[in-house]
Simulated assay, not measured.
Amino acid sequence: MPATAGPEGGPGKPTAAPLQGAPDRPYRYRPLLCFLDNTREALSGLLRRGRAGSTTTADHITVLDAAFAQIPDAHQYGTEIPIQSDSAGCMYGLLTRIRSLPSTA
Rank of each mutant, 00 (worst) to 15 (best):
M91S: 14
E41W: 00
G50P: 04
A67T: 03
D37G: 11
R51W: 05
F35W: 01
A5Y: 15
I71P: 03
G12W: 09
R99M: 13
L47A: 05
A17R: 13
C34Y: 00
P31R: 01
T4C: 09
G10D: 15
A88E: 05
T57G: 07
A16K: 14
L64P: 05
A67G: 00
A16V: 11
R97Y: 14
G93E: 10
T96V: 14
A22D: 11
L32P: 05
T79A: 07
Q20C: 04
Q20L: 04
A58G: 09
Y29M: 12
S100Q: 15
A3M: 13
R97M: 10
L43R: 01
G50H: 02
H75G: 10
A16C: 08
N38V: 02
L95W: 15
Y92G: 11
I83N: 02
R30L: 12
T79G: 04
T55G: 06
I81K: 06
A66F: 03
P2Q: 09
L19W: 09
T57D: 09
Q76P: 08
G21W: 06
T62P: 03
P31F: 01
I98E: 08
T56E: 06
V63D: 00
I83P: 02
T55D: 10
G50V: 06
S54P: 13
I61E: 09
A66K: 08
Y29N: 08
L36A: 04
P102T: 12
R25E: 08
R30W: 03
L94W: 09
A17S: 13
M1V: 11
L95E: 12
A66N: 10
D59G: 10
A88G: 04
I71R: 06
G45Q: 04
A17N: 08
A42E: 03
C90G: 14
I83S: 07
L19M: 12
G93P: 04
T56L: 09
S103F: 03
M1A: 10
Q70H: 07
S85T: 12
A17Q: 00
P82L: 05
L33C: 03
T79E: 06
A105R: 07
A105S: 12
K13C: 12
L46Y: 02
S87W: 02
A42T: 00
M1K: 04
T15R: 09
G78T: 12
M1H: 13
Q70T: 07
R48L: 06
I71G: 00
F35E: 01
Q84R: 13
P2H: 10
R48K: 00
R40H: 05
G53N: 08
R51D: 04
D73P: 01
M1D: 14
K13D: 09
Y92T: 15
A42D: 11
I83W: 03
L32A: 00
T62N: 01
T39Q: 02
Y27K: 08
S85P: 05
S85G: 02
S54C: 04
T104E: 05
G6R: 13
H75P: 01
R25T: 11
Q70G: 02
E80H: 15
T15Y: 14
P102D: 06
P23V: 04
T39L: 05
Y29R: 07
G10Q: 08
I81G: 11
A22L: 13
P18A: 08
L32R: 02
A67R: 07
P18N: 07
L19Y: 10
S103I: 12
T62W: 03
G53A: 14
T55L: 11
T62S: 09
T55E: 08
P82D: 03
T104L: 04
S85Y: 08
T96H: 15
